[in-house]
């Protein structure tokens, strides 16, 4: 399980659900930088999409390794935010996405280093999505849309044996349309979708204003998430990472924690997760 190489014949799906509610106007410290939660969401999402496009890019062009979808949820409802396909599907094939690269934007930040000194930092990222924040947080409705999108994708015969979809839910956790029980139930429904190679991986990225705590990736215990009830809820909702990723996660987070790991990050991107997925591995040797 979770061993199917991701190739253009066995494609997979990366789906982002992103919180664009009014609370995302709050300012947080993210990766040593001060920004609004909405900017942090855009940063994480744009970074991950850039990384996915680059990982699909080979010398002869972008290979069609996966579909990518972004579903935004805010007071203006639940809506696709990436390359509208026109149908009832919010996903776009990566090669088509790469054919419509948005402009690069340099994001400059002032970082404070551990020794107290300041350092300018910048990222060149394509602006796949713009920071946006408005109104309430219909996370439950958004997760329903995620579930339905996953079901449609997994039902397609060509996806039946593929590496299962990976869902990134990026939020501050404050849902306005579902109780904790309802959200956990919907998350379970999402985790039950999947392919012959495994169940869908639901990874929550929690953005919080709690400046006392550093970034956390793939915690192995609920305590690591702190006392924040939203953190605990997102921990509960997230997938337990399959054993095949244990070595990679341990190597990536560099800590002493023991598996099982939870698919969760706190004020951090999990782009490193992409390094452990077997994307395009069949072209290990350059084509003769």
């Amino acid at each position: 399980m979770y061993t199917r190489p991701i190739t253009h014949l066995d494609r997979t799906l990366f789906l982002f659900a992103i919180d664009c509610s009014g609370s995302m106007r709050e300012t947080i410290r993210f990766n040593g930088m001060t920004m609004s939660k909405a900017e942090a969401v855009a940063l994480v999402t744009n970074y991950m999409i850039d990384e996915l496009v680059e990982r699909a890019r080979r010398r002869d062009g972008v290979r069609n390794y996966y579909d990518i979808g972004v579903i935004g949820y805010s007071g203006e409802g639940v809506r696709p935010m990436l390359g509208q396909s026109g149908g009832d599907d919010c996903t776009v094939a990566v090669d088509r996405l790469a054919a419509q690269m948005p402009p690069v934007c340099r994001m400059d930040f002032d970082q404070r280093l551990p020794d107290g000194s300041r350092s300018a930092a910048s990222f060149d990222l394509h602006r796949w999505i713009e920071p946006f924040s408005s109104g309430l947080t219909p996370m439950y409705e958004a997760l329903m849309e995620v579930r339905d999108t996953l079901r449609r994708w997994c039902l397609r015969p060509e996806n039946a044996a593929s590496f299962p979809p990976v869902v990134f839910n990026i939020t501050d956790g404050e849902s306005s349309d579902g109780s904790c029980e309802e959200l956990c139930d919907m998350a379970a429904q999402i985790r039950r979708t999947g392919t012959a190679d495994g169940s869908t991986l639901l990874i929550n990225i929690h953005l919080s204003t709690d400046s006392e705590r550093g970034s956390i990736m793939f915690p192995s215990s609920e305590e690591a998430c702190g006392e924040d009830r939203y953190s605990r809820l997102l921990y509960e909702m997230a997938s337990t990472m399959p054993e095949v990723f244990d070595d990679a996660i341990r190597s990536s987070v560099g800590g002493v924690s023991l598996p099982p790991y939870k698919g969760m990050a706190y004020n951090a991107s999990v782009a490193q997760l992409l390094t452990v997925l077997d994307i395009g591995s069949r072209s290990v040797n350059n084509i003769f």
Binding site: Y47, D50, E51, E54, S122, D124, S252, Q272, L274, T275
Partner: peptide, 15 residues
């Protein structure tokens, strides 16, 4: 050992 993302690598060769 930390693994690099391609986005980080792109940033590093540019700066």
């Amino acid at each position: 050992m930390n693994i690099c993302t391609i986005v980080d690598f792109r940033g590093a060769v540019d700066d």
